[in-house]
């Protein structure tokens, strides 16, 4: 079969060359080539950074006791995998982040809905929301420790506190920006404000909610790490603080790299949700 087919393929190849390439095909080709080039260069930057880091350690340009090195990070990571500490610490951080994220989403959508329904309520709460949003939330963490003790509750509350006020404000603003005439349509069809909310406001704000979630997942992680710095015996935040105190910089840097990967994965999950929504909405 192969022998028979080979000349055919050759023939079609030569034929293809004679045909003028359509501008569209040329454009697509150029686009793909550009795309591949970008991906390649991205990996190259990473590779360059890792090589520089590794060799400047080996050549004793930097002190690996303070700066660690890729090979030391990898071997520390393998140790973490083997003794299972990777799973406990990463698992606990991930769990806390997801719980805070979930609570942030529920609380902020709920509150923004209430504010949308009641103008009075939104006017009363506006200055409080603005102040709470601009307050550096890490200042609250010691209070949470006193009130809730050291443990998961404090950490989750810290995670929520970082994102929730900003999230309420941006969701409420999004809800408010829905076309007034579309709301009027619901009223002319005999609907009430409940119909207006769940037939028009909520569906038209799904893109706002999704982009808000993207911000929140990052902020939840920030809050959880702050919480773990102060009030934990487990988790990546704890490893970072503990590692720096006992000069185990391998531990610190490995934990930071794991955090990077977690942050990226969580963001990608929301991105995927958004993609899914767009695909459904577009069909």
């Amino acid at each position: 079969m192969n022998i028979v087919e080979a000349p055919k393929a050759l023939l079609s190849n030569t034929c293809h060359k004679k045909e003028p390439v359509s501008p569209q095909a040329l454009y697509v080709k150029k686009h793909h080539r550009h795309h591949h080039l970008i991906t390649l260069l991205r990996f190259f930057v990473l590779f360059l950074f890792l090589t520089l880091w590794e060799f400047s350690g080996r050549l004793e340009l930097i002190d690996t006791f303070f700066f660690s090195s890729p090979s030391m990070v990898v071997s520390y990571f393998i140790n973490m995998l083997l003794d299972g500490s990777f799973f406990t610490h990463t698992g606990i951080t991930l769990l806390e982040t997801l719980l805070s994220f979930f609570l942030i989403t529920v609380i902020s959508i709920g509150t923004a809905t209430l504010l949308w329904y009641s103008k009075t309520l939104s006017e009363i709460s506006e200055p409080y929301l603005v102040v709470l949003n601009s307050l550096p939330k890490s200042a609250l963490a010691p209070l949470f420790i006193v009130w809730l003790g050291t443990g998961m509750n404090t950490i989750i509350v810290a995670g929520i506190s970082v994102a929730v006020f900003g999230s309420i404000i941006s969701l409420y603003t999004g809800f408010k920006q829905v076309d007034k005439e579309k709301l009027k349509l619901i009223y002319t069809l005999g609907g009430n404000s409940f119909d207006a909310f769940h037939k028009v406001v909520l569906p038209s704000c799904i893109p706002v909610i999704l982009s808000n979630m993207k911000v929140n997942i990052g902020l939840a992680l920030v809050g959880v790490i702050i919480g773990e710095f102060l009030a934990a015996r487990r988790g990546l935040g704890y490893l970072i603080i503990y590692g720096s105190q006992v000069f185990q910089l391998n531990m610190v840097i490995t934990s930071i790299i794991i955090l990077c990967v977690i942050a990226m994965c969580l963001y990608q999950c929301i991105q995927w949700l958004e993609h899914l929504y767009k695909k459904r909405a577009g069909s």
């Binding site: 076309d179 005439e181 579309k182 002319t188 038209s204």
Partner: peptide
């Protein structure tokens, strides 16, 4: 009927 169609 409103000024615009306002189809959702």
């Amino acid at each position: 009927m409103l000024q615009q169609d306002h189809l959702l």
